[in-house]
Nucleic acid binder design. Structure first.
Lengths: 195, 195
DNA sequence: CTTTGATCTGAACGCGTGTTCAGTTAGCGT
DNA sequence: ACGCTAACTGAACACGCGTTCAGATCAAAG
């Protein structure tokens, strides 16, 4: 037997990515085999190599896609207001974006050590760019006199760590809605850098 | 050959734990083999089973030891002051304790998914206890009128995430000393819950 | 000096790994 | 209707995995 009915590249490709992302998030990159991913997709392991040269590249592509989308979506936000308004937008965006892509966020953070050195540099570079986005907001706020931030670089990393932490406990069926969660965190963020 | 010169249980046991912790932190639990750990210790793989029943228990014991020590050391802190002073002590303690045990912190967070369900419950329980320590401080501060915290549980998780984030960038040879880092974070923590 | 038992070796077990590839089939373009 | 090729199967490869265990060796107790 070969080529089962109704199978197409357009279908199998995305399904491979979705299955790999879910399995990597749940069990970890090293603990998931290509055969497990293939079983989830509904093909044999060998068929996966029509869509990725190897397992390492599969992981890297998932992480790079996530980081690039994170940056693209944020950068396409119209930011017309002052630094405080931009900081609020960033806070709400980060929480909303990350909770909607919990698996990708998890993998992009946890599996850094399973990347080859070259691939690691790429992902780490994208992360630094994102951190710099926030850092720039904080510097601008301090310059404009609407914020007080002694260490903008450290503060940006501290705030991102705090905001990303939402993913460890948030559930869409929890007590608080996403809007309420955003409000709680924005309140803390605002006060932590307030003048 | 067997039993090489100078080998003792008192030496091999701790060396096994140290090697496993370092390797798990660097490469991940699933990516590290018992043979790699044994090579680091300087014995054959079979010898490790004099010190742990299996690889899973080795991981679990490392994580439980870390979490229990975290709680024990904090609980043994004399806390005589008011809520704000206790919060400052907690902030400085958390940063200092975690940066000094980077490998254990990393493993205890990253390898949760590699625990069996029963073992996971134990570690997760210890983590919740620790979070409750901070939550209690925040509730007391709010009750005493020295803090303003709308959601103490969420705030405690947010602050712990922020503080633990220090581990991702801190280096003893960096620009800031640990005392300076503590000061920067305490400033943000204080303001984020200030009345 | 002899005996005992803790400590470790080295080989083995069955099994799963990532990856390759010749062969087979399904659906599209003509 | 037919050929072409993208898509997939199934088997194979060499290798490493966690774990077990009989046997060897050394340190210490009597």
């Amino acid at each position: 037997m070969a080529r089962t009915q109704g199978s197409h590249s357009d279908i199998t490709g995305p399904r491979l990515r979705a299955a790999a992302l879910a399995l990597f998030a749940r069990h970890g990159f090293a603990a998931v085999s290509m055969r497990q991913i293939a079983a989830e997709v509904g093909v044999q392991a060998g068929a996966l190599y029509n869509y990725t040269p190897d397992k390492q590249t599969l992981l890297f592509d998932l992480m790079r896609s996530h980081m690039e989308e994170l940056l693209d979506v944020w950068d396409s936000h119209a930011q017309s207001g002052d630094a405080l308004e931009t900081l609020e937008a960033f806070t709400r965006f980060h929480i909303r974006f990350n909770t909607q892509r919990a698996d990708a966020v998890f993998v992009s953070y946890m599996e850094l050590r399973n990347l080859t050195p070259e691939n690691f540099e790429v992902i780490e570079g994208l992360r630094r760019v994102y951190e710099t986005r926030l850092e720039t907001i904080l510097r601008q706020g301090a310059r404009d006199g609407v914020m007080s931030v002694a260490e903008p670089r450290i503060a940006s990393m501290a705030l991102i760590a705090m905001l990303t932490g939402v993913n460890t406990w948030y559930s869409a069926r929890g007590r608080l809605s996403l809007v309420q969660v955003e409000a709680v965190y924005w309140d803390m963020v605002r006060r932590s850098v307030a003048r």
